[in-house]
Design a protein around this nucleic acid. Structure first.
Lengths: 212, 212
DNA sequence: GGTATCGGATACCCATGGGTATTGAGATGG
DNA sequence: CCATCTCAATACCCATGGGTATCCGATACC
């Protein structure tokens, strides 16, 4: 009656290893973002992925390694999203408006990303091993922002008002700060407000200050 | 021989309750900042304060209440530090320079504050009870920043370049973002860099943008 | 100074969850 | 078709740490 074969005789194929690993990582991202690293249980992550703890220990060395795998994976995926953003608009003002809107939307809508980022930052602030993984990624993000800004300033014909590296740092940190503020007080710091803040600073950085 | 009395017959006075509470709170701030909320052990906190777990449960309802007490306490102390800052310099440029230097120093030197702030933010992002305590505090901080900025702009005679509330949000979030970045990558984001970033944005917010 | 009360120390309980050893189903190869 | 290997499922171990019950010395009050 109850064989291990399906109704059509299929021998219940086993899910591929890659797939198992993928699902575990995705589930881990969700759970870590929702509960934080320390309060996340490996069993919950496994369940969320449709497996058990055994799968976790078969694919990763343990909790820390699972988290580190997420960090490494994210550090690649994160950069693409930032880079290709200001490609279509050639008018600097339009580019600024588009970028501000895009980033504001992401901050307001993708709270999972924000939460995970905050968790990573908090861990990095305390644990040097995490910091060693995170610091290079952040550097790359700042440089990507600097490059985008320089590009836009260049297309506008104006010489960059401030050192692009400094501008990149400012935009990067402001973005993270706004994300944090939105998570802490979503009512007061909504998408529109975030957008205005970003647009204001971007414009200020791209147009030379009035000498006074 | 071994009485409970000191060498001069003093009856070993017991530390005042207020004092016990004070020391426990101070120790808790240190430990929470160092290890994060979840990884902090009540016994470690008590030991750090020179007591035992019993003292904690005698003065606070438990771990969560201890943390909440810290939040409430900090929310008062935090505002004073922000407010009285730009009182001495009347020249806007000087005020900006002084403020940027002061904040940069605090970010670079007082890592404990930064770590605790990050931990609080991460908790608030996940837990609505924490958020309910944190959100009003953040609002007050933003408003304080807005007021300071408006004051400086006013003393310079120039009409504020942007809405003070928006400017307050920007400065507040940039500060937090810079603090986070310094914690994640202290080498690259040092005090001087933080200072430059802050000064740049403050100047931009206080002088009207060149119309282009 | 004797007694009641307070408050921190001590000892204990036990739910939690990371980690491990073992099992057994399904792939793999001869 | 059988032997072998792979890998997730299962069952288990046990250190950890929040919370509690109790004790006992110090203070307060009469």
């Amino acid at each position: 009656m109850s064989e291990t074969t399906g109704p059509r005789g299929g021998p219940t194929p086993r899910t591929r290893r890659d797939e198992v690993r993928r699902r575990l990582l995705d589930a881990a991202v969700r759970v870590f973002a929702e509960r934080g690293y320390a309060d996340s249980r490996l069993e919950d992550i496994a369940r969320e992925a449709g497996f058990t703890k055994g799968a976790v220990y078969s694919n990763f060395g343990g909790k820390q390694e699972l988290f580190a795998a997420i960090l490494r994976e994210r550090s690649e995926a994160e950069l693409d999203a930032v880079t290709a953003r200001t490609r279509d608009a050639d008018d600097p003002a339009a580019a600024v408006a588009a970028a501000a809107r895009l980033v504001a939307r992401r901050i307001a809508e993708d709270t999972e990303r924000g939460r995970l980022g905050l968790e990573v930052a908090a861990l990095a602030a305390r644990d040097s091993a995490t910091r060693d993984i995170v610091a290079p990624l952040r550097r790359a993000q700042r440089e990507a922002a600097a490059r985008s800004l320089a590009e836009v300033a260049d297309s506008g014909g104006a010489a960059p008002a401030v050192d692009p590296r400094l501008a990149g740092l400012i935009v990067h940190c402001l973005t993270n700060g706004l994300s944090m503020e939105h998570l802490a007080d979503p009512e007061a710091v909504d998408a529109a407000t975030v957008e205005r803040a970003l647009a204001t600073v971007l414009n200020a950085l791209l147009s030379p200050p009035a000498s006074g």
